[in-house]
């Protein structure tokens, strides 16, 4: 399968399950093509491991098109590797050099326990969404789209927030393992649109409370999340969430 000429040393985190401690294990890979994606390189490694009768490395992946948010991997100290605005599946081996040593670790956060090797349990994000990241609408005929005029700027900002794929790179790279970029994007995509208004202040309180309950850290505005986000989610969303939170707690009469 591999027809390239790159020789690499991988240091991969191997961990049986959440109950055991893991360690970095060295693997030598030869003849890797620079045109392979990072995950294809792992496929090659796993084929070799399987042929040798060893356990393959477990890692999350799904669409391999950069849109599903399943792939993770903390590569050489950065989530999704060295490229900006790219997920691990869209990272190619040409971004590395022949002879490189590549350290691959799972996302590290108390709220993201390791399932096995490089796979972590990100269902904390699902519970944050379930706490309020939705709108309640009565079923019935769809109304005419033009009944709800939305300014272009507003629609664009909502769309940009909605681009979040929930991969967790923000949590992984944050020195405090804070989930504020993710939560604020999910709050903003609804807070910016008319459909999100009825539940706006209830939503921000519920989702922030769930975020805290999951054991994520607190934001210190280093901006690492924004820099590493494969979808370019902006820190503006965190400021918007903080504003909405203040309005909810000090202005709104609705308590959650």
């Amino acid at each position: 399968m591999s027809t390239g000429n790159m020789n690499l040393t991988l240091k991969v985190w191997r961990q049986k399950n959440n109950k055991t401690t893991g360690a970095l294990v060295d693997y030598k890979l030869a003849d890797i093509s620079p045109d392979m994606s990072f995950l294809e390189m792992f496929d090659v490694l796993n084929e070799q491991l399987i042929n040798k009768g060893e356990e393959p490395v477990v890692f999350d992946h799904d669409c391999r098109e950069g849109i599903c948010g399943m792939c993770s991997m903390f590569i050489n100290g950065r989530p999704h590797g060295p490229k900006d605005l790219v997920t691990t599946c869209q990272l190619h081996m040409r971004s590395f050099k022949d002879g490189d040593t590549i350290v691959v670790e799972p996302w590290r956060a108390a709220a993201f326990p390791v399932v096995k090797d490089l796979t972590v349990d990100r269902s904390a994000f699902d519970r944050v969404i379930a706490a309020g990241g939705f709108i309640s609408v009565n079923t019935g005929n769809a109304q005419d789209a033009n009944n709800l005029p939305i300014p272009k700027m507003q629609a664009d900002a909502a769309f940009e927030a909605a681009a979040c794929i929930g991969c967790g790179a923000c949590v992984a790279t944050c020195k405090n393992a804070s989930a504020m970029l993710f939560v604020s994007a999910k709050i903003s995509q609804l807070a910016l649109l008319p459909q999100g208004q009825p539940e706006r202040y209830r939503r921000v309180q519920s989702m922030v409370a769930q975020m805290d309950a999951e054991g994520f850290g607190n934001c210190t505005n280093t901006g690492a999340c924004e820099a590493e986000c494969p979808k370019g989610i902006s820190l503006e969303n965190i400021a918007r969430m903080n504003r909405d939170f203040a309005s909810a707690k000090f202005v709104s009469e609705e308590t959650v």
Binding site: K11, W13, L24, F74, N76, G77, R78, P82, V103, E105, R108, A109, A110, A111, T173, K175, N176, A177, S178, G215, F216, G217, N218, T220, N221, T222, G223, A224, A227, E228
Partner: peptide
């Protein structure tokens, strides 16, 4: 208080963490 809480949010540290690639040293 926040620092203690933040340390608890990441009990296992990274072997390699390239902080300078995404943020200013003094912000961290």
């Amino acid at each position: 208080r926040l620092t203690l809480q933040n340390n608890k949010a990441r009990p296992v540290k990274y072997a390699v963490n390239d902080g300078k690639a995404n943020s200013k040293w003094y912000s961290r």
